[in-house]
Structures are given as C-alpha cells and as structure tokens.
Design a protein around this nucleic acid. Structure first.
Lengths: 261, 261
DNA sequence: TGTTTCATCTTGCGA
DNA sequence: TCGCAAGTTGAAACA
C-alpha cells in the first residue's frame, strides 16, 4: 500500500502550522476539523463568524469548507493558484487564491480539534453513469424496446428556433415525432419546452407533428398540460434502462438490486 | 469548549465499525478516510471502483464521498432517512437511504486510514452575503448612488404575465422603467427575460416603457440583443455595493481588502 | 477564451 | 408536494 497517513488530535497551532505547511508543499490531502471563521471575496462577498468546520485541501488544490449541516460546503475554492498557511494573531490562517476570476478565500482557525494528512492517495477506478444522452441514444438504438413503437430517427440535438430538440423521428404513418427526454419525473417546464418545439416545427412544415415526452413519470400539472396540448407521455423505467445500457459494457458488475433486496 | 473529538489511526474494521455505529447513533460528525468503492442508484445510477476516499457523515445525516480531485464529491446523499453501518465480507459497509426520491448510496471500505468523530459541533455565527435582493433594495433606497439616475420606485417583485419583474419604477419624464438585476455578468437569457417583461407591460399600457438591465457586466451576445431591442445596461460595482450595504450593518468587520493588500 | 447547457444539481420560498 | 428562481453554482461541450 502506498498511502501514508499522519494525524494529530488537538494539536497546538504551531504544531498544526508545520504539519499543514508540509502537507501543502507535498500536495497531500489535508483534512482539518476546527473552530474557524471564513471570508470570501470575488464574484460575490461573503463570510461566516466562528463555527465548527471541517476543512479539506485536496492534492489538486481544491479547498472545501463544510459546516455541520447540509450537502453544500459553506465556502470553497475549486481552482486555486495558491494555498498558503501562516499564523496570525492566535489563529491558523489558510489563504486560497484563484486568478480569473480573481477570488480569495481566507479561513482562520482559533482551535483545531483534529488534523490529518494523507499522502499518495489514488483516484481509483472509473465511474458509471446513466445520463439523458444515454437514454436518448438507447431509444434511438432500439425504439421498440424503449418506446414500444417503431420509429425512424432523423436527427438528435436538432437546432430549432428556441433551442435544440432532443431527438426528431418519423413514425410509421410518416408523421414527424419530436421527442423530449427526462431522466427524472418531468414537470410542467418540460412540457412547455416540448410544446414550443412542436409549435415551432408545425410553423415550418405542412406535415403532421407529434410531441412525445419520454420520462419515468410526470407531475399532475405536467400531465394536464400534455392532455390539453395533445402531446404524449411515454413512461420509461430507469432501472431496466440502466441494465440494458450497462449490461452491454464489457465490465459487468453487481447491481445495486443486491443491496436493495 | 463543548466539542469532543475521538480519532483512530488505521483502525481495524471491527474497531472502526463500533466507532462508526456509535457516531451514527449519537448523530456525531464522522470523517473517515479509506480505500472504498461506492454505488449509487436513484435518480441516476453510478459507482466507482476502489479508490482513496474521504467520507463524511454530518450530524444532520448528509453523506458526502470525496475523491482526491475536484470540488464536487463523487457521491452524496443529502437528506437521508437512514444511515447504517455493518461489516460485510472484509469491508466496512455504509448504506445511506433516502425516500422520495428513492435513492440508495452504498460505500464499502476495505481499508480505513483514519477515522474521526466530532461530537457537539456547532453551526456557528451568521453569514454575510450580498445577493440580488440586496442589490435591488440598495438601488431602491438610493437610485442616484447605485444607478446614477433619479427614479421613483413603484413596486418590487411585480407579477407580470411571464413571471415577476425585479422592480418597476418611474423616471423623471414619467416613463415606466422595468429593472432586471443580475449579481453576475448577464447573459443573453437575462436580456430575453427583460424584453419579455417590457413587451408584456407595453401591451398593457399606453405609457412609454424603458427596460434597464442592472449588472456588473454583460456578455457580447447580451449587449447586442440589448442594442437591437432598445434596452439599457447600467453597470454596477459589486465590491462598492458590498461596502455600502455591509457598512451600514451594526457589526462592522475587517474588509478582505486587508488581505488582498 | 467565452458561452451555453446539464446536474442525482442544491437550496429556499411560496402556493 | 410542486413550481420557480438563484447559485461564488461547477463542469463539460463547443465555437
């Protein structure tokens, strides 16, 4: 194993400074818990008075400050040009600077509960993901299997006045079919967008144009608007789509179904 | 001080399990570094093969998994209904479940480099920030200072057909002025929105209607559309606005300018 | 580099 | 719960 760990419990600020400085120089992965205040100035200006924080400085220089609540960090700095540490009036001060946009994040810790340094951390293996484009591509590859209908696909990402149509196809009756894909439950907004595309297309052709929203589900308001607008909803099942798409990839791995029971 | 810390360096999995379980039960703040693999299934499906990770479970149940690079976590789970730990075939397994949307995140750690538990962490003090509403309010309070023009404000957040006008005012010539505020560089989208409001208002009144985009800057495309549409751009300076707004607040604190030098 | 679009967006507010 | 808008959004794709 290549990973080296070093940690201190409630270190003094002087001790902390030397460990932090060394970690930054070595481009190690630094995790620090302490009572800190933060200030940010750049695209906006913000700050927080002292509170308990977990501060992380990654090997690539990203700085992230978490409070005890929520998914989002309190402050951060993604593309730092420099991260520096020093002692300033009884605090350990970290300054993360970014050029373009010019931003500065200052973290001042009056007390440090815990400090850990990881050296030689490795990124690890690849990453699977099913996104909207993959759903669309799967539908184009096998319209009957995914949409339950024989369609001939004409174009994906077709530019039409208000933006881009996810996919344009032709059905067996020769009608144009505008397809809008959603990976999550579709709201009213998705229907409005689909409607804009359908209307834009109808204005430019004498052919009949259908609009189909492809999503796992739709909200009540979305369904009403579909109904009123004469548009269609095709439900898809993410799980089985995931299996179809990923099942084709060479490296097959255990499904989460195992865990879900 | 109320924060209690407990930490282990390279604990065995059994030892780690008991500490983790206890931390979860006590709703403590858990930070763990190890070699882990992750699987997520819910709104999407994703996963990563083993790699070095820092895993955080916050007192509110949020779970965040970071890899050694970048601002964004590899996996996360914001509003968990349950987080559980157990040993499974030589790994420490964490399962974070959320209902609605139904999602599950599974983290399996084969090795644990270190583990820290923080109890009694406090959110800490308030949070300063300049947002769009504050810019708007400051402009309404002092139109000459912020916009360089005498305006009489009629209404903020006025509902008009497509949505809400940020602010509606009247200029010295008695013309209506629709104001759209942006805290960051304005894109074409902001101009389109402003234009929709201006046109909606013109359709409902015989009075002359001006449209003013208030922003630190605008993209080239946005400026062209402003020009073509006969709308105006008023540039503002965030830094000085921040000083104006925050300077008024009772608790005056050191400016970041001190650090920027 | 700038601009646009996507995201397991998150978050907050309101109906 | 749904709809909507803002975010230091970040990150990727594209011109």
């Amino acid at each position: 194993m290549t990973v080296e760990v070093e940690a201190s419990l409630e270190p003094g600020l002087g001790e902390a400074l030397s460990q932090v400085s060394e970690a930054l120089k070595a481009r190690a992965w630094l995790v620090l818990a302490g009572n800190c205040e933060t200030s940010y100035e750049g695209r906006a200006a913000s700050g927080s008075t002292p509170g308990d924080r977990v501060v992380m400085v990654k090997p690539d220089g990203s700085v992230i400050v978490h409070g005890p609540k929520g998914f989002k960090p309190l402050n951060w700095q993604p593309d730092t040009s420099s991260v520096e540490a020093r002692l300033d009036s009884d605090t350990l001060e970290l300054r993360a600077v970014r050029r373009s946009p010019r931003e500065i994040l200052v973290i001042r810790c009056a007390r440090i509960y815990y400090l850990a340094v990881l050296k030689g951390a490795e990124e690890g293996g690849f990453w699977l993901y099913v996104n909207e484009a993959e759903i669309r591509d799967e539908a184009m590859r096998d319209p009957v299997g995914v949409l339950g209908e024989r369609l001939r696909f004409i174009e994906a990402e077709k530019p039409v006045e208000p933006g881009f149509i996810d996919a344009l196809a032709e059905d067996e009756q020769g009608r144009l079919v505008v397809l809008e894909f959603k990976r999550v439950k579709a709201g009213e907004e998705a229907v409005k967008q689909l409607l804009r595309y359908v209307e834009a297309l109808r204005a430019r052709t004498s052919r009949e144009v259908r609009g189909v929203l492809v999503a796992p589900d739709a909200t009540e308001a979305a369904r009403r608007l579909l109904e009123r607008s004469g548009l269609e909803l095709r439900r898809i099942d993410l799980r089985s789509l995931y299996e179809r798409i990923k099942g084709r990839s060479a490296a097959r791995r255990r499904s989460l179904v195992d865990f879900l029971g």
